[in-house]
Amino acid sequence: MVIHHPKTPLEAVMLKKEKEDALYLAGGTEDLRLNGPMGENTELIDINGLVPSTIEKGEDGKLKIGALVTLQELVESDLVPEYLKSACRFCASFEKRNAATIGGNVGARRDDSYLIAALAAAGVSFMSITPHGEELKKVSEYANSDCKRLIEYFIIDPATKGYVHRFGITANTHAAVIAAKVGDSYALSVKGSALVCGDTPDIYKKVEYKDTLEGSAEYKKYLASTVFTLKEAK
């Protein structure tokens, strides 16, 4: 195996384009890759230091959260909204949060990512590097695509309020359904299905439910169809 050390984000993206099976190396999502399909010829592209690892508040009041900010740094930040901290706490234990990054988590595009549901409900976009230069992309669009852009930083409104709920068969199993509401927007991440977003609780109707190890299609449909209405009835 080989590690490439590109000097610029664009160089990293061009390498990724050239070597389709290459993987970005940074942060702490490597456990996913170690368990994933990797051959002896897998090449790695080290992006440490190429994308931001800080949380900054801009003049417009919006937060710029670097892709290499760890989940624990998000939990500890006074700037980050509570729903996002809650999603980070769901993601992993303390040690894992010290290594896992927001960019890595979103970049993995798992259908049981707590962060993707939360960020999608909040309508968050991120700045990315593509072979054609910098480009804004919505998390909700990215989650359901297979584009290979490099995430640079997320743009988040710190004033937004919301919640994230996870449902799984046990505390230790992967989630069957993740439901997030931020402001007046909803997002549902259902294991085995695409992420859906919308402005009404009936977004569950847009999901094509599938049986997976995390639960039957009917089980997940029941959860998705009741979570928002029950929460709001409280």
């Binding site: 195996m1 590690i3 190396l25 940074a26 942060g27 702490g28 490597e30 456990d31 890759r33 170690l34 790695l44 080290d46 440490n48 760890t70 624990q72 992993a92 234990s93 303390f94 040690e95 894992k96 010290n98 290594a99 230790n172």
Partner: peptide, 26 residues
């Protein structure tokens, strides 16, 4: 990375060494 038995300090932060590839600690 769930049990913490393999915990080490990486730049002063507690991390689980069973899920970190050595290439990430250069």
């Amino acid at each position: 990375g769930e049990c913490g038995a393999c915990s080490v300090l990486k730049n002063g932060k507690l991390v689980t060494s069973c899920i970190i590839p050595v290439g990430a600690i250069d």
